[in-house]
Each structure stands twice: as structure tokens, then as C-alpha cells.
Design a protein around this nucleic acid. Structure first.
Length: 336
DNA sequence: CGCTTTTGACCCGCGC
DNA sequence: GCGCGGGTCAAAAGCG
């Protein structure tokens, strides 16, 4: 694997970390994308988010557009930083998280051919009549799971610097569990998409190392439109339809307006942003990139994995390596 | 009343 | 086999 991919054509917020970390080239840790490789010289400006009682990614993203003309002054450390990365890999490795020296990073992992709605959907194939069978079927399914445990939903984790745990990503979630996390004072919450046909889940936990960081892990792909538009703002259909990082609202996040990229030259193709029809801009020292500049393909990537496959095909993320199998433990070691 | 959250119990996989 | 930890279930409580 080459180590050059992140020099010129680099996906903005994913710049840096992976090649160096996962490939072992940079002394970073491994696996996570470093959003601010060098003191915020390059980052997705996700804006500040103050301590509201409920957070919304849309809130974060609906701030008035920043100037896209000036390169970033050494920006103050944003209180909310979210990054998302999709990482199609042929293994069922889980997210690995070895944060590097910087503030925010993210990783993800997935199977290569995950059925879209693995277990949940399979569960629905049971006969619809009696409850007895229901329960026994449940057990059978669980037993079945044993054999099929490898087929997991694609997972996407991202870290958010925020003071609130559960960011509103536009989808509706029902909490179905909460567990204490080992070596962490913060519990992990389990959510499931409330849409009947949708088995997408997400886990939310606060980093024990950095309590200001919330790690959200999405699992699965939404098969339905995003039920909520941000504050009445109408999004491009494709921006929220069955897509996104992990088919989740993260994509919405990335597609929201007022995302500005400061830093190096943005990649020639930014699949993840292609549908950004609002004011997504990439600000470099010499030019501003806008969706118009970027548009060469109006099609949407139904799955972020495809987006990343494409990126990789184009050499943009070729240095991405599979995250080592293991649990997605955003923390290295308990430090408190 | 319907939906969501809480929470203890349960199941399962994994390491020892 | 056992214990542990992660993940899920499901009844009860809470809320609008």
C-alpha cells in the first residue's frame, strides 16, 4: 500500500490520520482519521455548539456561513467537531480507534457485503402467527446468529465534541438499552431507528478519556427517507434518503450547507459531498470550491461504503487500511 | 393513549 | 466450564 494518497487529493476531514496511523507511517495511532492534523490547519468547520439542552447536527450546521474567502486563522478549538468516515473493508473488523495526538478522529468498519438489514430483517421473515413460535424463533434466531455472527451491519463511528450526548441527526431513534461501559464512568446508550422497516442502530457513548467527546456508532443502512428536516429547512431529497454514513444522518451532516473546508487542496471528487447543493464550500488558500465546481456526477451514493470504494478507486483513500479487527474502543486505556 | 425511556434480566461470545 | 462484558429484550414508568 502506498503512502502517498494523502498528500494532494485528500478528502478534507479525513486528511492525514489514516495513512499515517493505520499504515504505521506517521506515528499516529492507527485507524482513526485525524481531523486536525496540524493545529487545525485542515478541518471541517463544524462550528461551535453551545450547551443547549438538546443538540442537533442541523443546528450545528445551520449556522450562518462563514467566510469562505479567508483561510482559517488558527481557529479556536471548536466545541463540536464531528467527522465521519466510511471504511469498506473485506473483513468484519470492527472499528478500531487509536486516537492520535489530536483532537478528533473517526473510524469505521464494515463487512464487504453486508446484507442491508441483517438480523433485524431476517427476524422479520418469521411467520406472523403465534407468539410461542415467536419466542422459540427468537431463540433459534439467536442460535442462528451464532453461525452468522460475522455478517454484521456496516458500522460507522464518529466522534463529536459536544456537551450533549445524543445529537439529533434527523432520524428518529428509540432507546432500547443502556449499559455501563467498562473503564468508563459514562454509560453507553443503544438506539434503534423507529422506522418499522429500518433496522439501523446506533450506540452513543461518551469518551472516558475526553468527556467532551461523544462517540456515536451507527450500524446499518436506513432504507427510508429522513423523517425530519432540520428546522423546516428542506433538504435535497437525496441528501437524506437512505444514504449517509452508515445510512445515517451523518450523511446529512456532511451534506449540510455551511460546511467549509479550510486547508489544503480539496480532492477533485468528493462523492460524499456531491449532493451538497447549498453552500458547501471548500476554501483553500487560492480558490473556493463549491458544489458547482465539484459536480461531475449528480448521482448519489446509496451507501457510503460505495463512496469510499470510489474514493479508494480514485486513489484518494488508497492508504486507508483495514482497521484491525477488534472492538471499536475509542479509548486507548483508561486514564482516569 | 401512544410513544419513549428506564432498567433489570437475559442471552451470547469470548477469554481463561 | 465459568465468568465477564457487550448487546438486547421487555415490562414498567414517564411524558406529552
Amino acid at each position: 500500500m502506498a503512502n502517498s494518497a494523502f498528500s494532494d487529493h485528500t478528502l478534507p476531514s479525513f486528511y492525514g490520520g489514516v495513512g499515517g496511523g493505520a499504515a504505521g507511517g506517521g506515528g499516529g495511532g492507527g485507524g482513526f482519521f485525524d481531523i486536525n492534523p496540524q493545529g487545525y490547519s485542515s478541518y471541517l468547520d463544524m462550528l461551535e455548539y453551545g450547551g443547549a439542552s438538546s443538540a442537533s447536527l442541523f443546528d450545528l450546521l445551520n449556522q450562518p456561513p462563514n467566510s469562505v474567502v479567508e483561510p482559517p486563522p488558527p481557529p479556536p478549538r471548536p466545541r463540536t467537531v464531528a467527522v465521519a468516515v466510511a471504511m469498506p473493508e473485506s473483513t468484519n473488523s470492527e472499528v478500531v480507534n487509536t486516537p492520535t495526538t489530536n483532537s478528533s478522529s473517526i473510524s469505521s468498519s464494515s463487512n464487504d457485503h453486508v446484507g442491508n438489514d441483517g438480523d433485524q430483517e431476517n427476524n422479520n421473515t418469521k411467520s406472523d402467527d403465534d407468539d410461542d413460535q415467536d419466542k422459540s424463533a427468537n431463540k433459534q434466531l439467536k442460535a442462528k446468529k451464532k453461525n452468522t455472527k460475522k455478517e454484521r451491519e456496516p458500522r460507522f463511528a464518529f466522534m463529536t465534541k459536544t456537551e450533549v450526548d445524543h445529537l439529533d441527526d434527523g432520524y428518529r431513534w428509540r432507546k432500547y438499552g443502556q449499559k455501563a461501559v467498562k473503564n468508563s464512568p459514562f454509560p453507553r446508550s443503544y438506539y434503534r431507528c423507529t422506522s418499522a422497516s429500518c433496522g439501523v442502530k446506533k450506540r452513543v457513548e461518551r469518551s472516558s478519556e475526553d468527556p467532551s467527546t461523544v462517540v456515536t456508532t451507527y450500524e446499518g443502512t436506513h432504507k427510508h427517507p429522513c423523517p425530519i428536516t432540520p428546522r423546516g429547512m428542506s433538504l435535497p431529497e437525496t441528501a437524506t434518503y437512505g444514504s449517509g454514513i452508515g445510512g445515517t444522518g451523518i450523511h446529512s451532516l456532511l451534506l449540510q450547507p455551511q460546511l467549509h473546508y479550510y486547508g489544503q487542496q480539496p480532492p477533485p471528487q468528493l462523492p460524499l459531498f456531491h449532493n451538497q447543493t447549498n453552500s458547501l464550500s471548500f476554501n483553500t488558500s487560492s480558490s473556493t470550491y463549491s458544489p458547482n465546481n465539484l459536480k461531475e456526477d449528480q448521482s448519489f451514493f446509496p451507501n457510503p461504503l460505495e463512496s469510499f470504494s470510489l474514493l479508494r478507486d480514485h486513489g484518494l483513500l488508497q492508504d486507508m487500511v483495514s482497521f484491525q479487527g477488534g472492538k471499536e474502543e475509542p479509548k486507548q486505556e483508561p486514564s482516569r
